[in-house]
Design a protein around this nucleic acid. Structure first.
Length: 502
RNA sequence: CUCCCCAUAGUUCAACGGACAGAACGGCUCCCUUCUAAGGAGCAGAUGGGGGUUCGAUUCCCUCUGGGGAGACCA
């Protein structure tokens, strides 16, 4: 990346250890750095020491920033680096677990956050060179409370989860056994199957569907986990229940892992699951949980410390969506029935617009879900602006008689790079930087910002430069082809289609 | 009562501790003999209050206010 090249050029010039920035901000040169401010040195002196063929000009501005302008060679170098994107992953294994909705009903719009965010994050990490596994945990243990609850409803002894969807599923069903666990599990499997189908239709592919029942409970993993924790002397009995000393490792209090009834608590299952994951040798495990699980973060982190897990564990919390109707704000609640299914939203608004709608927001934002706005946005969504720019690129490439070469080589510039071309190149070379930034801070919405900016930059280029018939047509076609490639890559990471025509 | 998250234009959202806080939608002006006007150019409009750390704070710390979550031997 050109940013890294500039960084090392500066490092060489100052020859000191300092954690400085090299950033882009179109207002201030192509790249800019605060190195002089941090070192409290005369920026001019530092600027004079930097000699690089990639830099054509250094400006000193503001409270001592160095603003860099790339030379033609710098621009071309940046474009060359596009091919080998970032490489920080080096094939390390990362696991991303997301959605993991209970198999007791359909996915609602709250699940959409985890779904699209997790998918896009996994895509980005993959692009950055990590080996990513996407995993979905199915809470389907026959011992678990919600499966039993579901079972009760099925047997007519309760009303939990009783949606029209479930009612339809239960029509004309007769049960030979009178066992809540068994019937609950049977129906949960069917619901899960429906959900998996639906998730696939969203363009999300999981590498592993991890069943709590089959891969933990049936394999006696709960028992093994308790034994392990006992061996570590981390458990004790109180009031007939088994407790884990999580408070020793940063949790607010100790937690029950086996209830006095002998049933296991969900927390134990979660520990067993994470032990299973850790054993697989990931460099990093990323869990995306709903806001209702935020209270569990501390206890899981406590277990990580307690057992000395080697894998990094990042638990991301997706904040709740609230439903807004006019001035009224409602909590999404299954019980109150003001739940909106994700499939209905997709049906109404379209998958591309829905994905954009979700992905442009950071995970920690409390989403105010205004259904009317979402519908309105189906027509005014920025995603169409981005796609439209892509369609224009296609149109140019199709109309030109010249073949689109892969590379926009230095010689193509013909000695002079015009402003619109230059701006477009600068935006292109920010692509790997955006990927790198996201792998560090997981702020996936940067990608939608980037996509929009790239489309916008291209639209200006389109206005100013007539490609077909120009004397530089060959070079410009190569640039357009490259832009299309990067735009397609970006949309692919977001899981959004790139139509050839609109 | 304790813990966690949030508070930015009229609205929905952005902003690795950096410069003059960006977009979109909505409002107001302009631009179609030009490779797709689903486009482009421009105007108006915002960091909840008070402290602190820093050369520099939307960002970090404290506090107040206002929202939302979590606080079961439910998940």
């Amino acid at each position: 990346m050109i940013r890294d090249i500039l960084r090392s050029e500066i490092e060489r010039a100052v020859n000191k250890k300092v954690d400085f920035n090299v950033s882009t901000n179109e207002k201030f040169g192509d790249y800019s750095s605060n190195v002089a401010i941090l070192l409290k040195e005369d920026p001019k002196k530092i600027a004079d020491k930097i000699k690089s063929p990639y830099i054509s000009k250094i400006e000193i501005a503001g409270p001592g920033f160095l603003n860099f302008y790339l030379s033609e060679k710098g621009l071309m170098e940046g474009l060359k680096k596009l091919a080998d994107c970032p490489k920080q992953g080096l094939g390390q294994k990362i696991q991303v677990e997301f959605i993991s909705a209970n198999p007791t009903g359909e996915l609602h719009i709250g699940h959409g956050r985890s779904a699209f965010y997790g998918d896009a994050l996994a895509n980005v990490l993959e692009k950055a060179g990590y080996k990513v596994e996407r995993e979905y945990f199915i809470n389907d243990s026959k011992e678990s409370a919600q499966i039993k609850e579901l079972g009760k409803t099925i047997l007519g002894k309760g009303t939990s989860y009783l949606t029209s969807y479930l009612k339809k599923k239960l029509e004309k069903r007769k049960w030979k056994v009178d066992d809540e666990s068994e019937v609950g599990y049977a129906i949960a499997e069917e619901i899960q199957e429906d959900n998996e189908k639906f998730i696939k239709s969203l363009g999300i592919k999981f590498d592993r569907w991890f069943s709590e029942e089959l891969q933990l409970r049936e394999k006696k993993e709960f028992k093994k986990t308790i034994e392990l924790l006992e061996k570590k002397k981390m458990v004790y009995k109180k009031d007939g229940a088994v407790w884990l000393k999580t408070s020793k490792y940063g949790d607010d209090e100790d937690r029950v892992i086996v209830r006095s009834s002998g049933e296991i608590a969900y927390f134990l299952s979660d520990i067993a699951y994470h032990i299973n994951k850790v054993k697989r040798g990931y460099k990093k495990i990323i869990d995306i949980w709903g806001a209702d699980h935020q209270g569990h973060v501390k206890r899981m982190m406590a277990v990580k410390k307690m057992l000395g897990w080697k894998s990094d564990l990042d638990i991301l919390i997706s904040q709740l969506a609230t439903l807004k109707k006019g001035d009224e704000r409602k909590k999404l609640s299954k019980r109150k029935g003001n739940i909106v299914l994700l499939k209905d939203l997709v049906k109404e608004v379209g998958l591309d617009a829905v994905r954009w709608f979700y992905l442009e927001k950071s995970l920690s934002t409390h989403m105010d879900f205004d259904l009317d706005l979402a519908k309105e946005r189906s027509q005014k969504n920025p995603v169409y602006y981005v796609q439209y720019a892509g369609a224009r690129m296609n149109s140019i490439l199709n109309k030109s008689k010249l073949p689109a070469r892969r590379c926009f080589a230095s010689s193509d510039a013909g000695g002079q790079i015009s402003k619109p071309v230059r701006n477009l190149i600068l935006k292109l070379i920010q692509f790997p930087e955006t990927i790198e930034d996201i792998t560090k801070d997981y702020q996936v919405q940067r990608l939608t910002v980037y996509a929009y900016e790239l489309a916008s930059e291209f639209s200006q280029f389109y206005r100013d430069i007539k490609v077909i018939g120009s004397k530089n047509e060959k070079e410009l076609i190569a640039l357009v082809a490259l832009t299309r490639k990067i735009l397609q890559d970006t949309l692919k990471l977001l899981g959004i289609s790139a139509p050839e025509k609109m």
